[in-house]
Simulated assay, not measured.
Amino acid sequence: MQTLHVNGYDMAYLEVGKGPPLVCVHGTLGDFRTWYAVLGPLSKNHRVISVSLRHFFPEHWDGAGSDYLMSQHVADVIAFIEQIAPKPVDLMGHSRGGHIAFRVAQARPDLLRRVVLAEPGGDLDASLAPATPASGAPSLAVRVAASVKKVASGDIEGALMNFVDAIDGDGAWARLPTAAKQQLRDNIFTLLGQVGEKRRPFAKSEAESITTPMLLIGGGDTEGTLSLIWRVLAEHIPGAKTAVIPGARHWMFEQAPQEFSKAVLAFLAG
């Protein structure tokens, strides 16, 4: 593990492989360990740099403070990339990290060569809202709010089960390997910050303004809003590519690492 001092914070990261830099940003309850399943294939041709965002493991945050903001995490990733050479870099984000990667592409396209969004999290504003809402799992905000109540009451395992099962289906938490459960458990108090992170919804004008080549990728079996958002964004991001990982859900890179890596590497090589 290494760190870079970024906006007054020591941002932890792992670096594997040689080649053009690929910066990877985890989602809710993740950290630099999120990408373990794909570090092997991705690092064959790339210098994979997997970051932990502010207040995530290896920090053990208690949820106190006012700097757990979407804007702060976006600014941190930008400042982190500014210290990476050579530039431009490739950037990949999953879920909440996909939202961050989208915002980085909006603000600083000069830093980026290509971007991969794996089921970016958030909401669509009225300009992008589909005529038929997604069925199945509720929005990210609803899931987080329900889990936060359980965290506040001390029911950590209940909060984790509620969150994971809402995304990947009933019984998903119980089926997770012990190491994957511990990673999520290590970051559980970041949910307290996420409630007030001030994440704004995606807008049509924002999607249309993206100039960096972008791949949007999703699990073939993902349900609810997470299965919808990336498809809607892809319709409005100029020249966007898409890929579906059959038989996988939201954590597709863990469930089908070879298929996920193949799609990412093909895009990055294009």
Rank of each mutant, 00 (worst) to 15 (best):
P238H: 07
G121T: 10
F80Q: 01
A174R: 10
A207H: 07
V244I: 11
D165E: 05
A207F: 05
G247A: 01
R113W: 02
V38M: 02
G8Q: 01
L111W: 01
L42E: 09
G17N: 10
L124T: 00
H26A: 04
G121Q: 08
R231P: 01
Y68P: 02
A126H: 09
L91N: 07
G8C: 05
L265C: 04
S50E: 06
D221Q: 14
L112H: 07
W35T: 06
D221K: 06
A180N: 14
P21F: 02
S147F: 00
R200Q: 15
L176S: 04
G270V: 00
A118G: 13
R114G: 04
A141K: 14
S153T: 04
A137T: 11
L53C: 13
A75R: 12
V38G: 00
G218P: 03
A145Y: 08
P213S: 11
G239V: 01
E235Y: 00
A134S: 15
S153I: 03
Q183S: 14
H236V: 07
M1V: 14
L216P: 01
E223Y: 09
G40P: 05
L268W: 03
D110H: 05
I78L: 01
I229Q: 05
R33I: 06
I245V: 13
E15G: 02
V6F: 02
A146D: 15
T212V: 15
P246M: 00
H46E: 00
W61R: 10
L22S: 00
S127P: 08
A203F: 07
L124C: 03
S147Q: 00
P133T: 13
G63Q: 00
S50C: 15
A75G: 13
T222F: 01
G40D: 12
A180W: 06
G97L: 00
H60V: 14
G19N: 06
K198P: 09
G169E: 02
E157S: 09
G19E: 08
A174S: 12
A75C: 06
W251Q: 14
S66T: 15
Y68D: 14
W230D: 14
S227C: 09
S209Y: 12
Q258V: 15
F202M: 07
M252K: 03
V48I: 01
A243W: 07
I156N: 12
L42M: 10
W173P: 08
V116D: 00
F260N: 00
A152P: 08
K44R: 15
I188H: 11
S50L: 03
Q2F: 09
